[in-house]
Design a protein around this nucleic acid. Structure first.
Length: 428
DNA sequence: TGTCCACTGGAAGGGAGGGCTT
DNA sequence: AAGCCCTCCCTTCCAGTGGACA
């Protein structure tokens, strides 16, 4: 009988001894190395909530992977633990003026929920269990959603801490009306109190806020600096001990390399953890007993390729067509194109695939979006009398990306219609 | 120094889609 | 069923821009 396809994997010794989620960025460890001071600071602000008073609103700034979300979620877990301990023991006697059960944490990621209706709805629904009373995902006037939210929060005496992660995304996309309402909500509540914690990658986003909102929101501010390579090594070391039980599963300079590569990326702990997790997974797949620096470099490439693939595959059809037009026209990958040239290429592709074209104005926006995603490099340049336009260049591997785009059924039709014609006509 | 080009980018508004209210 | 709300995607309009060129 043929051997089962899983047999060789089952027989090989797994590298992961414990929970592999420990190496995921979503995991909140027992200790957050080099963020103790920030935890202390935020806890000293939040402790007010345990006494039933409203803590100051706080704004946390710092680049991706500097521990902002981790610190906030760490405190959330600590509060939940206090609640558990409090229910199981007679802590009440020890902390007579503290009541941890009055504190409710609501976490919203504004990159996922990025409209003011969505944010209000999500907060309101955190306090409702029954499906029938949920605020629908659309349909209600804003005033009604806001009233329902107030009513639910104010049902009983409590302190509601609302965490708005990636707050800059919400403000950029939908303005500051949510913050305006939430920051003045306390004047309309009788029983409860609301405190806000805003988390942002962008220090300057408050410039777009109404001055009243800005002052109410930024009662306290904390800035998270990037981790340096040594600090990243400590973070990785700590996680490795938890995930593998031992550190010698990593050959030589693996940890230092992960830390150094992530330190180059503005000290991003997320990147360091991803590198470590994926290199370990690659080592395991290759049935190696140790993770080597070679695995780390492979992991780095894999992360980069996966990012591009994920970004391209989720693009809407018209953005894919624009991207496709750029890639086909820059035959050697290095040519710089203008908005006008890209638009003509796009029009031609639309004609071949039978899709209605969008206006050049709209395509200019799609080009900006592709630039923001890092798929292309678009720089505004003036050619004097020949006008002012963008200079556009693909910044992803050409052939791989073309293949990824061609997986789309609409574009498959065009690719079968000899794409080389377009390249030649446009470049001559 | 003024003109001109090929856009850029902001603003306003239309309309489709999903859903609620009366 | 009609009217309303919100979001999203898009169009239309138009003032502004930077630098080569006459």
């Amino acid at each position: 009988m043929a051997e089962n396809v899983f047999s060789s994997y089952i027989r090989s010794k797994p590298i992961f001894k414990g929970d592999r989620d420990i190496l995921r960025t979503s995991y909140i460890p027992e200790e957050l190395p080099h963020r103790e001071e920030y935890i202390e600071n935020l806890a000293s602000i939040m402790v007010t909530a345990l006494r039933g008073n409203r803590p100051s609103n706080v704004l946390l700034f710092g680049k991706t992977g500097t521990g902002k979300t981790a610190v906030v979620r760490y405190l959330e877990r600590e509060i939940e633990r206090l609640k558990m301990e409090d229910s199981n023991s007679d802590l009440d006697d020890a902390f007579t003026d503290y009541n941890v059960h009055r504190v409710e944490y609501v976490y919203i990621n504004c990159e996922v929920v990025d409209t003011h209706y969505g944010v209000m709805k999500n907060i309101g629904n955190k306090f409702i269990d029954s499906w029938s009373e949920q605020i629908p995902f659309t349909g209600w006037p804003m005033e009604k959603v806001y009233d329902a939210l107030k009513e639910r929060i104010d049902e009983k005496p409590r302190v509601v801490v609302i965490i708005l992660d990636e707050l800059d995304k919400l403000v950029t996309k939908s303005g500051d009306s949510v913050l305006y309402h939430l920051s003045k909500i306390n004047s309309e509540l009788k029983n409860s109190k609301v405190s806000l914690i805003g988390i942002s990658n962008n220090l300057k986003f408050t410039e777009f806020l109404d001055p009243r909102v800005k002052s109410r929101l930024g009662e306290e501010k904390m800035i998270f600096p990037p981790y340096n390579a040594d600090q990243l090594k400590d973070i990785l070391g700590e996680r490795i001990r938890q995930a593998f039980g031992e550190i010698d599963i990593m050959e030589g300079d693996v940890i230092a390399l992960c830390a150094a590569l992530a330190a180059q990326e503005h000290g991003d702990a997320r990147r360091a953890l991803d590198l470590l997790r994926i290199s370990t997974e690659l080592a395991e797949r290759e049935k190696c007993s140790k993770v080597t620096t070679n695995h780390v470099y492979k992991a780095k490439n894999k992360i980069e390729q996966d990012c591009v693939r994920e970004a391209v595959i989720t693009l809407p059809t018209h953005s894919k067509l624009v991207m496709y037009s750029i890639l086909l026209m820059s035959k050697n990958g290095g040519e710089k194109l203008t908005t006008g040239e890209v638009y003509s290429g796009y029009e031609e592709l639309c004609a071949k695939s039978g899709i209605d074209t969008l206006t050049q104005r709209r395509i200019a926006d799609l080009i900006s979006e592709l630039d923001m995603l890092g798929l292309i490099l678009a720089r505004v340049k003036s050619f004097g009398r020949r006008g002012r336009t963008r200079e556009i260049q693909a910044s992803v591997p050409r052939m791989e990306t073309i293949k990824t785009i061609e997986e789309d059924d609409c574009i498959k039709v065009v690719s079968e219609l000899e794409s080389s014609n377009l390249t030649q006509t446009k470049l001559i």
